[in-house]
């Protein structure tokens, strides 16, 4: 293409090391400006993480999926409150934890979830692909034992090991100090280890 005598330009970057996915912070800044496409990119990246967190927190897939949808609708509604360079995961999971806590406060749901957990045998037939995954990951006991943790311990241990948040971010999400977040996580692991030992006996 082009004439033989046309000069060539110098390509100064093809950019292997410079190519990077837009950061969550950049996408959230776009979202804060009302850019729905950036928000969709965030949803593609993080919605399944929130589904996972909420499902483990409330103990069933249907409510977990619904809560995750509500979390992202809230994220859109509260987009203007996001401050650039804030840790996006902390912002997102603060919304997720608040939704899960509100869900738990509704005593009818408490009763229903607890009854469901008690009535579900360990060898139950998987009700869905997600339930099948639950069974595949070290048996259903882990799912049930996480549900038995107090809400404060449950959210802390899920944020640390399922979502990979650091202790500072967990403190921000849970409204406690970094040291307190650390203590909650270790206490939760200790309770799960106790249950694990009983299962392996």
């Amino acid at each position: 293409m082009g004439s033989q005598n046309t000069p060539h330009l110098t390509v100064v970057s093809g950019g292997g090391s410079l190519v990077q996915a837009p950061s969550d912070d950049a996408l959230m800044a776009l979202t804060a400006g009302g850019e729905a496409r950036a928000f969709e990119a965030l949803a593609q990246r993080h919605l399944h993480r929130v589904v996972s967190f909420c499902t483990r927190f409330v103990g069933n897939q249907v409510d977990g999926e619904e809560l995750a949808q509500e979390v992202f609708v809230s994220l859109w509604s509260h987009r203007a409150r996001y401050q650039s360079r804030q840790q996006f995961s902390a912002f997102l999971f603060t919304l997720a934890v608040n939704h899960c806590r509100n869900h738990q406060r509704w005593w009818r749901r408490w009763l229903r979830a607890d009854e469901q957990a008690r009535n579900t045998p360990l060898s139950a037939e998987p009700a869905s692909a997600l339930e099948a995954l639950l069974d595949a990951e070290r048996g259903r006991w882990l799912h049930d034992e996480v549900r038995k943790l107090s809400p404060l311990l449950r959210e802390a241990v899920l944020l640390r090991f399922e979502q990979g948040l650091d202790y500072r971010a967990i403190g921000l999400v849970c409204g406690c100090s970094e040291g307190n977040a650390r203590a909650r996580v270790f206490r939760a692991v200790e309770q799960l280890r106790t249950a694990q030992r009983e299962v392996s006996r």
Binding site: E40, L47, V51, S52, R56, Q69, L142, V157, Q196
Partner: peptide
Amino acid sequence: LLGALAKPLAEPDAQRV
């Protein structure tokens, strides 16, 4: 135990988005 907790329950899903 910690490894099992780290396994996600849900995968990215375009329909969900």
